[in-house]
Every structure is written in structure tokens, then in C-alpha cells.
Amino acid sequence: MDTAADVEARLPIRSDMDLAWVRQHVRQAATRVGFGLVDQTKLVTAASELARNTLVHGGGGVLETSRVTAADGTAGLRLTFSDEGPGIPDLERALSDGYTSGDGLGMGLGGSRRLVHDFEVDSTPGAGTTVRVTSWVSRPVRPRGGA
């Protein structure tokens, strides 16, 4: 993990232990991009939830992190989780609160969506799932419909 010090990285998600690495890396990356403490915590928590999803439901995968810049110059951090697992058959339901297909409190996808600014899921049954989340520095979280 030579790239550990940088924002850009590609981390494997294969075990419990990898989740801890993911959290540490996302914390460092968020600090570097310039997020405040509360936003860092939200991002790390979202990353932890999504990485666990990748591990538990996707049978493992990778996290890619990158620094992004919005059209107006706002700095952001993008996290992309991808796996080659069974995919999510009913995305809408998976995003609703309380839905769970494994252990945990069913807060994985729906909950982490509330912790970030932009949230995209791309899932093909049988071919895997990619979840891409982005947060922007010091932009208040917009009220989300249904939240």
C-alpha cells in the first residue's frame, strides 16, 4: 500500500481486516481533501457500511478513491465500491430503510446514502454491483426527498 498516503488509491475488500484499512484510508483522504470533522466522520462511516456490503453481499471487491473537482471549483472525494457478486435484484427496495438481506440493521445502502452528497448504484443481477458516492467540502447536505 504505497499509495496509502495519497487520496488516490485502490484497496481490496476481502476481509474484516480490510474494512479497517478502508476506514483509515478514507479518513486520511478526507482530511487531505479538506473535509471538516463531522463530514469526515460521515464519509468514513458511509465507506465502512458500503465496504461491508461489498464484502458480505458482493463476496468481496475493491474500493477506489479519487479526488474530484466540481465545475465551480469545490473539492470533493469520490469512493467507488465494486464487486462481481450476485448483484442487487430489487434496487429500490435495497435502498429503503430497514431492508436487509444479511446481518446488520438494514442501514447499509439507504443509510449511507444520507451520509453523502451524491449516490449512484449500478447493479446487474449476476454480474456485480458498483456503488459510487461523492461528497463535497463544506457544502451543506441538501434535504433529501423522503429522508
Binding site: T41, K42, L115
Partner: peptide, 14 residues
């Protein structure tokens, strides 16, 4: 519990 942790948990719905 730290404030940032509490805020995040509430936002998460817990």
C-alpha cells in the same frame, strides 16, 4: 460518544 459520531449515527437513522 463524540459529537461527530452521534450526528452521523442519527443521520444514518440509528
Amino acid at each position: 460518544m463524540r459529537p461527530a459520531v452521534a450526528i452521523t449515527l442519527v443521520e444514518l437513522g440509528l
